[in-house]
Amino acid sequence: MFKLGALDFSCGRSLFRDTLKEAPESTAKVFVKIQLEGRSESNIYAQIDTGAAWSVLDPLVAKSLGLLDLDGQRTTLHTRFGRIEGILAKLLVTFLADDGIALEKHGTFFISPDWPSGRTFLGYSGLLASMRFALDPRTNHFYFGP
């Protein structure tokens, strides 16, 4: 694992994917393995997006986990898909490790039935801003730590 001086910088490592479609034609992005609310049936790939304020949950995943009807803070976000209404809710995210130890964090997610399905984003404010992480595009390794 990573060391910063004598200290551990990260606790776990996983392989990230450049694309979810097995298609070399797509533009490279960073998709990492997570689990939501501690439920193993919710293992998904989510895109790391440091430019986004909030994390956003795929509405199909939200529906399957019964999270579409959560009683969260109602809000409207200006997105590249226009203004979308939804709720902000705190969810437990587990960054799954291929090596080392998984990391559990609570993150604030925007959940809306109007968000295009198939896209879960992990944003900076409310999630990534409270954890250490590193990317090595040579090996497609994603490192994470508390």
């Binding site: 694309t19 298609a23 070399p24 034609e25 797509s26 533009t27 490279a28």
Partner: peptide
Amino acid sequence: ELVESDMVGGARL
């Protein structure tokens, strides 16, 4: 067209 469609990998190929 590929670049504008978010298919940079395809554009490179």
